[in-house]
Structure formats: C-alpha cells, structure tokens
C-alpha cells in the first residue's frame, strides 16, 4: 500500500515539474480568462441594469458565482487530459505502462492533480491583479457548513471531471480523431455544467432534470454550495450522494473502456 503510494507520489512530483515548465501557457490562459470574466461582468451588469435581481439573486452574488467558477475551472477542471491520453495511445507511448506494475488511471490522475495545482496557483495571479476592480461585487455567504460540504463536493467533482476526460481519451482505441467529440462534449458541459449561466435560471423542470446528469456536478454543484445558490444542507448531502454515484458509474465505464480498448490495441516496435 505504502509502496504504491510512493509510486504515484513520484508520478505526481514529475507531473508537477513538467507542468511548471508550461507555467507560461497556464499564465497566458489565465490572462485570457480575465477577458472572459470581463465579458461576463459587462453582459450580466447590463442585464441587471433593467432589473434588481435575476432568479432571486442580485448582481453581486451572480458575479461571485462566475468568479468562483473561473477559479474552480483552473483548480479542478480537466484541461487537455483527454488529448494527452489520446496522444499516448496513438503514438504507442501507452505500451510502456502495459508492462509495468502501474495503474494507468491512477498514474494519469496523479499527473492531473499536479497540473491543477500549478494551473490553480497561476490563476490566482491575474485574479489578484483584477481584485481591486471586482472586490466590490464579491458577496460570499459565511456559513461554516458550506466548507464542510463544499470540500468533498469539490474532490468528487475533480474526480468526475478527470474520469470524463479519461473516457474521452480512451475513445482513441476506436477512433483516430477524438477532438470533435471532445469539443462537442464541451458545448454540452458548458451549458449543463452551469458555466454559461447559473443552472437555477433554467425553467424549474429542466433544472430538476439536470440534477440527475453528471454535468451538474462538474461545476455548478460545488460552485453553488460555495456561493450560496444552494442553501439546504439536506439537499446538498443528497447531491453529494448522487455525485458519488456518478463517479462510480464513470469509473466503471473507464475500466470497461480500458479493458475492451486494450483488446483492440496493437503495440508495435521494441
């Protein structure tokens, strides 16, 4: 058990080093995210000019929601893990893992955690620069239980997002090009994950239905706990339970894809 832990700790540390090499790429991406945040502030600011609250929330809590989502994206979101896995399969680099006592999912997840640590730290830099301009809009709730429920929801969300990216990466066993599927899925995730707008602004029956899909737990659920859009601890606990179920389902799908994919895989060369 301990030996296994050390094995993946090293994978994590190597991941950390290789991601620090790409710190400028993350920094540039973080910088451009500020422009996206500017679009959000301008659009929703103009929408709130005509009405004091939208969906029961004032401008401040709504903008806080989008700021938190931006931070979460860099801390727990899957960036290009699907492409990396796809490349490893396509280029045959995956072959080295087949002969070693390494679980490929855990190995990739260790690297994912390292990458998110670097990208998460780097998004704080542009946010700190923008802080004087946005701090007047930020409005966080103060209940302590949000932290206690928010942390497990965030951890499960990270695992959920990585599992989805992992499954898309494994599709390379069947398809030569997965980019189209990934971007198609991103469009669905951006809506049903609450990245375009808070999901509670949708008609009640759509919002209720969305809670049974995994996308709801990718961003909206942890974001809504932290920013006060979800207020009932019992509802949140039930949500964490559903989130855990989706994680298990996705882990099962990932394992099935891995086993079946390897049957199709041909390792060539020495």
């Amino acid at each position: 058990m301990l030996a296994s832990f050390h094995k993946y700790r090293h994978a994590f540390l190597i991941g950390l080093q290789s991601n620090i090499v790409y710190r400028w790429n993350f920094a540039v991406r973080g910088f451009f995210s500020l422009f996206h945040l500017a679009v959000v502030f301008i659009l929703w600011g103009a929408a709130f000019a005509a009405t004091p609250n939208i969906g029961g929330f004032a401008l401040g809590p709504t903008l806080t929601y989008f700021v938190v989502l931006l931070v979460l994206q860099f801390f727990i979101g899957a960036f290009n893990e699907d492409y990396q896995i796809s490349e490893e399969i396509r280029n045959g680099l995956i072959n080295q893992f087949l002969l070693k006592p390494i679980n490929y999912f855990v190995y990739r997840f260790s690297i994912f955690l390292a990458a998110r640590l670097v990208s998460g730290a780097l998004i704080l830099v542009p946010l700190l620069l923008a802080f004087p301009a946005i701090r007047g809009y930020l409005a966080f709730p103060h209940e302590w239980w949000r932290l206690a429920l928010g942390v497990p929801a965030l951890a499960l969300s990270a695992l959920l997002q990585f599992s989805i990216a992992y499954c898309f990466g494994l599709l390379t066993f069947w398809f030569l090009e997965i980019q189209g599927f990934v971007i198609l899925s991103m469009a669905v995730e951006s809506v049903l994950g609450g990245q375009m707008f808070p999901l509670d602004l949708l008609p009640a029956w759509v919002f209720h239905g969305a809670q049974f899909l995994p996308f709801y737990y990718q961003m909206y659920f942890p974001g809504a706990i932290i920013t006060g859009r979800l207020n009932d601890p019992h509802v949140i606990l039930r949500g964490i339970g559903l989130e855990a179920c989706w994680v298990l389902v996705l882990l099962a799908i990932a394992q099935t894809l891995w086993v079946r994919g390897l049957r199709r895989h041909t390792a060539v060369g020495g």
Binding site: L43, W44, A47, F48, I54, L201, P203
Partner: peptide, 8 residues
C-alpha cells in the same frame, strides 16, 4: 435564458 428574467 437572460431574457427570460429581464426585458432589456
């Protein structure tokens, strides 16, 4: 969605 909650 935005115009479901505001008119302008």
């Amino acid at each position: 969605v935005i115009y479901d909650h505001t008119t302008s």
